[in-house]
Design a protein around this nucleic acid. Structure first.
Length: 986
DNA sequence: ACCGCCGGGTGCC
DNA sequence: ACCGCCGGGTGCC
């Protein structure tokens, strides 16, 4: 069991508990109670956050003449161990900010430092006070940072070799002096660390980071291209203008200045002749529901190259027929040149942007005049619709559908049509679809990363979580003129293309983080990675917050001219999560984590004003953020109907109460034993297990019946027993209603497997790790050794029914309360739609019975459903037709942020979530853009139960968290113990 | 390197 | 002189 390793590895997390997360309303950070209660969390990287300055030491860099890396006065340098150096295994390289080697640390000092670095006793950072004009050696000022408990060891090690650190009080400690921007000036002007701000000040400052909309470039508005049928709201016109400005921007990136014939970085004092590239893109961090998707589509259509709209052909019937003929013709065999000539006369380049380097193509796409001509073609404007209203698609005709069948039979992309979608065929995401068919042509247009010129780039890659993939296709259909040839390819499913030529023909390619990561790890060929994109857009961009996750690496390895991150939660998990995002944006020098840490992350977490200033100006220059309460010209961005939350207290029946108390007493007994043994914290998994049971009994006595009784004991049995136990444990994880996530990809579990150390991952994720680290692969959560053969898979679908066969259905107090409310509503107005939310899918199943009995038409959405069924469920529920479902049974975390359930005006939360953020997100699914009615939320809470206690602790945590900033502040063990006592009334 | 270090040449004042 | 001193060769790790 996982807690066995807690003593050895301070950052062990039991995934069993990982999903039960609490919410920090300020940082919008989700954190698990386990991390909180044990005062742990994060990865080894966080050691750097809590580092203190041990002191400084002057040393020498030698061998300058052998290397090309140059440095300026006061420039920061990085130290890098070089254990395989053939002359000295203690060798330490010194690199400049660009990663070019400058020299080596002189060998005597290196011999002493190597030990410290290899054992991670300290992080050693260098600043070269006098770096320019040194031919052979140069001095370097070294700062030693590390955990306080390692300070003595470091000092001892150094003094054994005759080195002595100057005490930290003598130095500023950031490697540069706050606002002057001169790296390293501090060493000669020693001061105590810059004026430290209080937590409160920091919080205020941080709030300001995203709220400043006064600048001109963020308030200017811009109209979208004609092909965008939905009129943009004022704030969306602002985002469009700002994004177009960012994409066409020719300025130097933040913190760079042009000086004489060099470009200077004012933070690191690095300089180079080459002009640093600016980010053509940034972060659109608008709150959920402000229309990031629509705005992004508008950018794609509006800013092709140099501010001109994407050249798109207007479809006409004649064109379509010829096109369709062409299609069939080409599918018969490899195309020949004559055919292409024909093609071009019928359908110019729009559907085939990157065919080859022939002149005709270059002319049509990259010349300045040509795109304008195209625009005139689409000038016949369709009547615009109001935002949120659905645009009926007129263009789809049967020949297109036929064509799609033809195409998909050959494994090619299929034509998307609304008609087909209504029949439920083309909506299947399992196969590639395009909105309008790209011309098939014989493999002449293989695009290569290097040889294409930037003007020829056309395709935008959009990467999103699977749960919002359909949102993109829906919105494309909803907002884009159907009469326009917008080539769209959904890169998903087993039939996805391997042919870059197919991608090169697209305007938009949609895929998911998981598909991207899978392709990336399957190294063989990932067409997405062997391609230069015009744009890459990350939807729910905080998905890549974990720098070690495969998904993040796969994303960072994409090649694109312009890069966008869409996210509603800019700093979801404290400052360090920002790094992956900046790294994606390729902002020099922050793509290297060391420079990010040294210049921003650590100074800010230590309360340095200069660091915060830098962070502010950085964020300001690349981020646009509006909240639901932001205003444009004095008016709120959005006016949503009211949202009211009621708590309805439930009194259990005597019978239920008896069950509750017996479970409670049993748990109490076990946990009291841990108290007396003083092992509460090491048995925390059991504590949460007990809480889970109590929460379940509050809902329905049948819910906790299938819990494995073995949770309270340890020990090993036969391999078969172990296997059974692991499967049980995994099932508990999967069915606990917490919508477990994989600690590697941080996404929902996909093909869950459990390790012998009882941690659950996606099979592809953990296999990747084992492959990469073999032969010594370790569990990413507990560092225990893992092997491929030891992974236990979850047996398929013997599910609830077989587990508990003939248990007769009974009601419960909560079910009665719900049914009472639903029947009441129906009496008032039979058209009212309600969402019934629980963390326990089994509970939802139990609720189905009385719903059916009372004649409710309902639908259901939970994490176990395939994408196709999900889409169906949502569409049925959202339909306003008579006979459409009036109740949706929803598992708390199903669907993700993109889920739109605005048809509902009532939400019933059957059980409180650990994590108020999850509740809020859930409410936002119906209380969002498009909601016309007031929304009423009813939370059912059993009085005098663990549920009430959960609310209390949540409130307390909210308060506590509101005062915290950035880094996690683990509560004292006294607090932890008290919390457990509160929860269990001990 | 306008240094340090090495090793050969050399040796009263 | 088993030294000192001189001056040329030489130079990261």
């Amino acid at each position: 069991m996982a807690w066995k390793y807690l003593n050895d590895f301070s950052w062990d997390l039991d995934p069993d508990l990982y999903g039960d997360r609490l919410y920090n309303p300020f940082t919008r950070e989700l954190y698990s109670p386990l991390e909180e209660l044990l005062g742990i969390g994060g990865t080894a990287d966080e050691d750097i956050d809590s580092a203190v300055l041990f002191g400084t030491l002057r040393g020498n860099v030698v061998g300058l003449r052998y290397y090309t890396g140059v440095v300026n006065n006061n420039e920061m340098v990085a130290l890098q161990r070089e254990p395989n150096n053939r002359y000295d295994m203690n060798a330490i390289k010194v690199n400049n900010v660009n990663g070019e080697q400058v020299g080596h640390i002189k060998k005597e000092l290196a011999a002493s430092l190597a030990h410290i670095m290899d054992n991670k006793l300290a992080q050693i950072e260098g600043v070269v006070p006098y770096g320019a004009h040194n031919a052979f050696t140069m001095p370097v000022l070294l700062s030693f940072w590390g955990k306080a408990e390692n300070k003595e060891a470091v000092l001892r090690n150094l003094s054994l070799d005759g080195f002595k650190l100057a005490p930290p009080g003598k130095s500023l400690g950031f490697g540069y002096s706050g606002t002057s921007g001169k790296a390293g000036t501090s060493y000669s002007a020693p001061v105590r660390a810059a004026v430290q701000m209080t937590t409160e000040q920091l919080k205020t400052e941080f709030d300001k980071l995203f709220e400043d909309l006064k600048e001109d470039d963020k308030t200017r508005e811009m109209e979208a291209a004609e092909a965008v049928l939905t009129p943009l709201l004022p704030h969306q016109k602002q985002s469009l203008a700002w994004m177009v400005l960012r994409e066409n921007n020719k300025e130097l990136p933040p913190f760079w200045e042009e000086r004489e014939d060099f470009f200077y970085n004012t933070i690191t004092n690095f300089a180079e002749k080459k002009r640093p590239e600016n980010v053509l893109g940034g972060i659109l961090a608008d709150d959920m529901g402000l229309g990031k998707t629509l705005t992004t589509l508008a950018v794609i259509l509006t800013n092709f190259h140099s501010g001109k709209p994407l050249p798109l052909e207007k479809k006409s019937n004649q064109l379509k027929e010829e096109y369709s003929l062409q299609q069939k013709h080409n599918l018969k065999g490899p195309s020949v040149l004559e055919t292409e000539e024909e093609n071009d006369s019928v359908l110019p380049q729009s559907s085939c942007p990157k065919r080859d380097k022939e002149k005709k193509f270059t002319n049509t796409v990259s010349s300045d005049s040509e795109p304008e001509e195209k625009i005139t073609l689409i000038n016949t404007k369709a009547p615009k619709t109001q935002p949120g209203s659905r645009k009926r698609r007129k263009g789809a005709s049967s020949d297109v559908v036929e064509d799609s069948a033809f195409a998909s039979a050959l494994g090619e992309s299929a034509t998307y049509s609304k008609k087909a979608k209504r029949k439920g065929t083309a909506s299947a995401l399992g196969k590639p679809t395009t909105y309008s068919k790209a011309k098939k042509k014989g493999g002449t247009a293989v695009q290569s990363k290097k040889s294409e010129s930037e003007e020829n780039l056309r395709a935008t890659l959009i990467i999103c979580p699977l749960s919002v993939l359909s949102n993109w296709t829906d919105q494309l259909e909803q907002h884009i003129d159907p009469a326009v040839h917008l080539n769209t390819y959904v890169y998903y499913g087993s039939e996805r293309t391997k042919d870059p030529a197919v991608l090169s023909r697209q305007d938009i390619v949609l895929t998911t983080y998981n598909v991207l990561a899978n392709d990336y790890s399957a190294k063989s060929n990932s067409p997405l990675h062997n391609f230069k994109w015009l744009r890459v857009v990350l939807d729910e961009g905080h998905t890549i917050r974990n720098p070690n996750a495969l998904q993040t690496k796969a994303v960072l390895d994409l090649d694109a001219q312009r890069r966008w991150i869409l996210t509603g939660t800019p700093i979801q998990n404290s400052l360090k999560d920002l790094w992956s995002l900046l790294s994606f944006l390729k902002l020099k020098p922050f793509t290297d984590r060391e420079w990010w840490r040294r210049t921003i992350q650590r100074p800010v977490t230590m309360g340095d004003q200069g660091g915060l200033k830098r962070l502010q100006s950085l964020i300001k220059s690349i981020t646009l953020r509006r909240t639901k309460t932001s205003k444009v010209k004095g008016k709120p961005v959005l006016t949503l109907p009211e949202r009211k939350v009621f708590i309805q207290h439930i009194t259990l029946t005597d019978e239920e109460n008896a069950i509750y108390h017996s479970v409670k007493n049993e748990s109490k007994a076990a946990i009291s034993r841990y108290f007396s043994e003083g092992t509460v914290l090491t048995h925390y998994a059991d504590v949460l297990g007990a809480l889970l049971r109590l929460r379940q009994v509050c809902c329905h006595p049948h819910l906790c019946a299938s819990l494995p009784p073995s949770t309270f004991e340890e020990g090993n049995g036969t391999p078969e027993q172990l296997r059974t136990k692991l499967i049980e444990k995994m099932k508990l994880v999967l069915s606990s209603g917490s919508d477990e996530e994989c600690a590697i990809c941080l996404d929902s579990l996909n093909l869950p497997v459990i390790t012998h150390c009882a941690h659950v991952y996606c099979k592809p994720c953990i296999c990747e790790v084992i492959q990469r680290e073999k032969p010594n692969a370790k569990c990413p959560l507990c560092r225990k050794e893992v092997e491929l053969q030891q992974l236990v898979e979850c047996p398929l679908e013997d599910s609830d029914d077989t587990e508990k066969p003939a248990q007769e259905w009974i009601s419960s107090s909560k079910i009665n309360a719900l049914m009472h409310a639903l029947l009441d509503l129906r009496k008032q107005n039979p058209a009212i739609k309600s969402i019934v939310v629980s963390q326990f899918t089994k509970f939802l199943s139990l609720i189905e019975v009385p719903l059916r009995k009372s004649g409710f038409i309902f639908t259901r959405l939970d994490g176990t459903m395939r994408q196709k069924k999900r889409t169906e469920a949502i569409q049925q529920f959202q339909s306003s037709e008579a006979g459409s479902p009036t109740v949706m049974l929803l598992s708390l975390k199903a669907g993700g942020v993109g889920l739109n359930l605005t048809a509902a005006s009532q939400v019933f939360l059957m059980d409180p979530a650990w994590n108020p953020a999850a509740e809020d997100q859930c409410f936002d699914r119906c209380h969002r853009l498009g909601q016309k009615q007031d929304v009423t939320i009813t939370k059912f809470i059993v009085e005098h139960s663990v549920e009430e206690n959960m609310l209390k602790i949540q409130d307390k945590k909210r308060e506590l968290a509101a005062g915290a900033f950035g880094a996690k502040k683990p509560s004292s063990s006294e607090t932890k113990i008290n919390e457990i006592k509160t929860l269990l009334d001990l």
